[in-house]
Amino acid sequence: MFLWFHKLGSPPHFYRIAGKWIPWLTGIFLVLLVAGLYGGLIEAPPDYQQGESYRIIFVHVPSAWMSLFIYVVMAICGIVIIVWRMKLAEVVLISSAPIGASFTFLALVTGSLWGKPMWGTYWVWDARLTSELILLFLYLGVIGLHNAIEDKRVAARAVAILALVGVVNIPIIHYSVEWWHSLHQGPTVTKFDKPSIHWSMLLPLLLMALAFQVYYVLALFHKCRVELLQRERNSKWVEEL
């Protein structure tokens, strides 16, 4: 197990393995995406209250999940960087940040698009949307800090610390915002927490979530390969390619 971990951690090995996986992952992603979209947009019945417009949750909810998930992955990489100084973790952390920021942005956009028919306005200070907005700032902070530091290994240590500080704060921020929202509850109705959801809606939702996960790994592999080539451009294994 440790040996495998160690081997995967070596850049040339990862580069090769990731290269082999990419076509397979692309295929799996497309299948899941088509199945999820078909189930969500065509098979699932319209909501009795919200009609057709609720269907945006098939994009909104998985991207909101991913936005949190990717930050946690970054924090785990942060621990690995600080404790073991593993190069691959640095690459994964840095490559994850823009993907996570994109999912957060997607969650915000789909959330506000949903708001238009539901609340008659593109933006309401809903607890979930507000949390996502702050999460987007946290992602942008990670990206900004990384870009500002020239030495990439030092930059990786900096964002590792920042990601760990962020991951401690995310639950605090999240519950603070929820609490704040419950205090200032306006005329809006919270649309997101349905006590029970019919399986014909749940299944496509899970399929989409899975598709997004696979997409994350796929995008991550692509970005990591590019980042690795850039970082190790003077080393022997890159020249041999």
């Binding site: 702050i134 946290l138 902070g141 900004g144 800090l145 500002a148 704060n169 605090i172 921020i173 603070s176």
Partner: peptide, 23 residues
């Protein structure tokens, strides 16, 4: 501490810190 070594640390500092001040 994260930005003290940077030339343009000030702008990044606010981006890093203000979200954490929300609670």
């Amino acid at each position: 501490a994260l930005t003290v070594g940077l030339r343009k640390g000030g702008i990044i500092l606010s981006l890093l810190v203000l979200p954490l001040y929300v609670p």
